[in-house]
């Protein structure tokens, strides 16, 4: 905002613009700004979310490697500059809105699981993700069982049997198994102003 008006008015204009391009109202964008501020000052108070801050929020600890956290962070960090800005935060959360188009959720999940960004979810990537999940949840599965699970998944999802799941195959597969997209919807986003009641003391906008 380059206006000579007060910073509050500039910020209001920016939030309104963000709301226009999202499923959120201005009030909801303001409420999400409260969440963003909280997350972005948890370790380094610079108004940006660093990976360690997202990790702290999701795992209650800012250290340790987690493949899925890395993938989520990469997709939120659209500019690929190592931090999540508020605009990027709103863009990515828009996909998780209960009323966001299912195609956006399908695409986001595909990009999440396409670890090497080849345009396909490869068998090796699925193996890597299941192994990471087992490590994270301290579960132990025999190699044989793990292979069976992956075989079964590919038998269902990889319809042309080329050993990798294309975007089209992924779409058909998740539409057949919609529970796989369950974590792509955050019911909180439908009523975000209730989730952050503190924001109502700050708002200057009537929805």
């Amino acid at each position: 905002c380059r206006s000579r008006r007060s910073p509050q008015i500039c910020q209001q204009a920016n939030l309104s613009l963000l709301a226009l391009d999202s499923p959120f109202s201005v009030n909801e964008v303001e409420a999400l700004y409260e969440l963003f501020k909280k997350l972005s000052c948890s370790i380094i108070d610079d108004g940006l979310i660093h990976k360690e801050e997202l990790q702290l929020a999701l795992f209650q600890a800012p250290y340790g490697e987690n493949l899925f956290l890395d993938r989520v962070f990469d997709l939120f960090d659209e500019k690929k500059n190592g931090v999540i800005e508020f605009e990027e935060f709103i863009h990515a959360l828009s996909v998780f809105h209960p009323y966001a188009p299912i195609e956006e959720k399908i695409d986001f999940a595909f990009r999440l699981y396409d670890l090497r960004q080849t345009g396909f979810i490869e068998r090796e990537e699925v193996h890597q993700m299941v192994a990471a999940l087992l490590m994270e949840s301290e579960m132990i599965l025999s190699d044989e069982l793990l292979t069976m699970i992956i075989d079964k998944t590919f038998a269902d999802a990889d319809s042309d049997k080329d050993g990798k799941i294309s975007k089209e195959e992924w779409k058909v597969y998740v539409l057949k198994h919609p529970t796989l997209l369950k974590n792509m919807t955050l019911p909180y986003l439908k009523d975000v102003t209730t989730a952050f009641p503190s924001f109502i003391f700050n708002t200057e906008v009537e929805d």
């Binding site: 987690n66 899925f68 699925v126 999940l133 069976m148 992956i150 998944t153 198994h177 529970t179 974590n183």
Partner: peptide
């Protein structure tokens, strides 16, 4: 559900790193 009837993505989707709902729970 036994592990053999599970599919890999069902397992993967239970990761805490993919559960963004926890951002709103504190």
């Amino acid at each position: 559900k036994t592990p053999v009837t599970m599919n890999a993505f069902e397992l993967i989707s239970t990761s805490q790193g993919l559960n963004l709902g926890s951002l709103f729970e504190k």
